[in-house]
Design a protein around this nucleic acid. Structure first.
Lengths: 189, 189
DNA sequence: TGCCATCCGGAGAGGATCTCCGTATTCTAG
DNA sequence: CTAGAATACGGAGATCCTCTCCGGATGGCA
């Protein structure tokens, strides 16, 4: 890749991050290109599909979530570790303001970009380890599947950001999920 | 209202129902007007805001849900009555293909149309009666609030329609909600 | 330094939302 | 029945968005 192309790619990515943080998923790709100082053609050449842009933006965050999940495998309370991690997933999804929700909430469809599917899989595998540990511990019902749990968490994150005026909605909704009931003593890590 | 205006309003409503059923929330209002045989100006005069069109479309369905809720108050199992009704709410939301999700999933914000807020309130009141009955019966934890429960159900409905290939996703996700665990013997009404 | 593969950027097609206002139609009063 | 007033229609058009295409600029290599 040529040096100028690499520069432009970085600038677009920075602009996209800022735009999505401010306007949510309905940020105009046009304006992202404009605020990055490139033409629309350049944006679409670097990121042909919305999924490509999404993966480029959240790739680092996904890695961070997976690492946090690995760390939490050592937590003394498996159930709390799972809850803490799922809450981090939800918060991350909320921070992306619908960008994640629109593309990642549901399980991958057959036509999903391969890179996006890979993100899904990494999150799923991390969550599966935490869930299995909590289930072996007996703290979480055994009939729960990680894919459904993640889908539900994403849905909760999505709906929470529809009501930005209610900052506790996310926590209340998470507490409505089986296996996510907070114990009074426990606090987050 | 003039007779021709009333006719046009009905035609727009029919076209809108069909379009939303086919294309989901992102149906083009332009094409709705076109398929109704009216100009865009006419559509926007009758329904100045998206909320107005939504309320006109789902008004009847909301009434039907409330009536179903009243009927279920006589059901022998309060918990199952609540579950059955919430599933009906979710199915209705799914049938609207994102139209409801986009506008009704979250609690009403201060700037919500009054009519839309009224729909919310009618659903909430119906659900509150069913929930309270189930809670008195001891079958559902007492710390659950109906507004949160409905928000969660709407979120579940929204995410389920993102994955149309998985027809059981809605039921699996609902089963993940506290107080919604199905008992093996019970069946729906 | 000069050439070529690579990349840029903006014009523009196509489509959506929403507004405005001249025109047409319905209703009503005489 | 008719004429005027009130009401409603509808489409042109302003504005924005997505996405494509290609002439021209530019970086990297021999």
């Amino acid at each position: 890749m040529r040096a100028d192309a690499r520069d432009n790619r970085e600038r677009v990515l920075r602009a996209a991050r800022a735009a999505f943080a401010e306007h949510g998923a309905q940020a105009s790709l046009n304006k992202i290109a404009q605020s990055a100082g490139v033409g629309p053609g350049t944006l679409y050449r670097h990121f042909p599909t919305p999924g490509a842009l999404l993966v480029a933006i959240i790739g680092d965050d996904v890695a961070a979530l997976c690492e946090k999940g690995r760390d939490l495998l050592d937590h003394r309370s498996p159930a709390q570790a799972l809850r803490t991690w799922l809450r981090a997933v939800a918060e991350h999804a909320t921070a992306m303001r619908g960008l994640v929700a629109a593309r990642m909430a549901a399980p991958p469809a057959p036509d999903t970009d391969a890179a996006l599917a890979a993100c899904h899989e990494r999150i799923r595998a991390t969550g599966a380890a935490l869930l299995e540990r909590a289930q072996r511990d007996g703290a979480v019902p055994g009939d729960i599947e990680i894919a459904d749990l993640l889908t539900l968490v994403n849905a909760v994150a999505w709906v929470s950001e529809q009501a930005p005026c209610d900052e506790y909605l996310l926590d209340r909704l998470l507490a409505l999920v089986r296996g996510m009931e907070p114990s009074p003593q426990e606090e987050e890590t």
